[in-house]
Write a protein that binds this DNA or RNA. Structure first.
Lengths: 165, 165
DNA sequence: AAAATATGTCAACATGTCTGACATAAAAAC
DNA sequence: GTTTTTATGTCAGACATGTTGACATATTTT
């Protein structure tokens, strides 16, 4: 973050062109915008929103996760989560079961219907990533990962990516 | 864009590991989430939201752009835009002037105050990108760009990036 | 003169976020 | 074993951002 000093003849140009940085900002904006359009459309049919997708995605990704773990990932309040999670539970996409070691916890899990919805929702996003990855090539993907990790804030979250590869 | 055929012994592995794709999805989620936290916090002080930032950003980026051009970029309805744009104009961050060739148009421009707010808002995002770019190196940045362009949908939007480099 | 375009505006509504307050059950600490 | 902390739920009210639909005005194009 800080220095403009570690430059002793190394590769990176220390002052990046204004335009290059602006481009980076806009790439993130457009990519995220397009990345969410199609799932959003599907969700409409169920009367759900993007928040439901996020919950379904992460519960699918980490079965038996607790409510508080989910809150940490999503960075929203429990009241915000309560509405969408409640809907998903009442409508049979997610089940909650009491934790064994800690009976206060409500561990979350997708139902078969939930799994199906998750698949349907993420399908387009998977294809989009897959296509972009294949077209760009593995070398570019490595660079993509590096930059994205640099954009992400905390070591905690960065740690989530320290396994693949 | 289309094919899965140009593979005769080339580099890209055609079936990407499930986990690699998932990782890509999550990188986008976390990066975008963290990318917007700080500006959002600043905006709160002004009673503004993320939508105001987007308007200020793009008007700053493309001075004298028309309302309809802005609508195309943002992909929202004019009624949605009207609210935030109206606030920004009334509070002196943006001025509208009638188009010369087409007097129906209201061309948008940041006031000095608007420029200052834009700078303040985007400062953190610029630093974030700059840091990530410098740390990852120009080679990685090239890969990042390739992948992000692949994620973005239309040729129209991709065309916005066909100049730098 | 008529039609299309660029913009603005009013109204109603859905969604997702927030803060604040309070309740319950279970675990941890004393 | 009582107290405190933790995990979760819930109610209520607020605000920001998005949507549709309808209609108005000025200006350009046909």
């Amino acid at each position: 973050m800080s220095d403009i000093k570690t430059t002793e003849g190394l590769t990176p140009p220390l002052t990046l062109p204004e335009d290059e940085v602006r481009q980076g900002i806009e790439l993130l904006f457009y990519a995220y915008r397009d990345f969410t359009i199609e799932p959003d459309t599907i969700l409409l049919k169920y009367g759900f929103g993007r928040a439901h997708h996020r919950v379904i995605y992460f519960v699918g990704r980490h079965p038996h996760m607790s409510v508080s773990e989910l809150l940490v990932i999503l960075r929203i309040t429990k009241q915000s989560l309560a509405r969408v999670l409640g809907q998903l539970v009442r409508q049979g996409f997610i089940v909650q079961h009491t934790g064994k070691s800690d009976r206060r916890q409500r561990l979350l899990q997708l139902t078969p219907t939930g799994v199906e919805l998750e698949r349907q929702l993420s399908e387009n996003q998977r294809q989009r990533i897959q296509r972009a990855y294949v077209e760009a090539g593995p070398h570019a993907v490595e660079g993509f990962r590096k930059v994205m990790l640099g954009v992400i804030s905390g070591d905690a979250d960065r740690g989530r990516f320290r396994r693949t590869r």
